[in-house]
Amino acid sequence: MFDAAEKEFGGIDVVVNSAGRLSLSPIADLDLDDLDALHRTNIRGTFVTAREAARRVRHGGTIITMSTSVVGLQLPTYGAYVASKGAVEAMTLVLARELRGRQITVNAVAPGPTATELFLDGKDETTVERMAKQPPLERLGTPEDIAEVVAFLASPAGHWINGQVVRANGGIV
């Protein structure tokens, strides 16, 4: 993927890693195969992408990872997911410091409840409605809400923001 982007565009200026997997289960009941699969995507996948981005993003570029606002909410059954996204946040902040001097910003975006296939999968209408009422804005986020935050961070206007986790969640504490 990186080779193709460099060939097609002459270099890489922005990398956004948004691959993710979710497995809901109480920690006591979680199947370790599910944990391994989740961590392989969320931690290892992010790490491999970040490693390659650190090697290839041009001076002045941007690397953006995806976390979740559930890291701060610590909801029951989200233990494995929160553990993986907490690792993503830590990795992101370390990478921002490791790229000192290259003018490359590295940030994580941590969406709150957002109307995506990943979020909606397995949730009944009552649960979705309850979660939509959590933010003071009283609605689910949209993919466009999150895309606008990512676009801002990747733009020159967002280039002073570095080594941060941006919780794009409608105000959930």
Rank of each mutant, 00 (worst) to 15 (best):
F2K: 02
F2W: 01
F2T: 02
K7M: 08
E8V: 11
E8K: 15
F9E: 10
F9Q: 09
G11E: 01
G11N: 00
G11L: 03
V14C: 07
S18I: 13
A19P: 05
S23T: 14
L30F: 13
L32P: 03
L32N: 06
D36H: 06
L38H: 06
H39N: 10
H39E: 08
R40G: 12
R40I: 05
I43H: 10
R44F: 08
V48W: 15
T49A: 13
R51Y: 13
E52Q: 14
A53H: 13
A54G: 15
R55A: 14
R55N: 15
R56S: 05
V57R: 02
T62D: 05
I64W: 06
S67Q: 14
S67W: 15
V70T: 14
L75Q: 12
L75N: 09
A80E: 06
G86C: 13
A87D: 08
V88N: 11
T92C: 15
L95H: 07
E98R: 11
E98G: 15
L99K: 03
R102M: 12
V106M: 03
N107A: 04
P111W: 02
D121W: 00
G122D: 05
G122Y: 07
D124R: 02
T126K: 06
V128I: 08
E129T: 10
M131I: 06
A132F: 07
E138Y: 06
R139G: 00
R139F: 01
G141H: 02
G141A: 11
P143A: 10
P143Y: 08
D145T: 04
I146N: 01
E148M: 04
V149P: 01
V150H: 02
V150W: 00
F152E: 01
L153H: 04
L153K: 06
S155G: 01
P156K: 08
A157I: 10
A157D: 09
G158Y: 01
G158A: 00
H159S: 08
H159Q: 09
N162I: 09
N162L: 08
G163N: 09
G163M: 04
G163Q: 03
Q164E: 07
V165Y: 04
R167C: 11
G170R: 00
G170K: 00
I172G: 14
I172W: 02
I172Q: 09
I172N: 11
V173I: 14
V173Y: 05
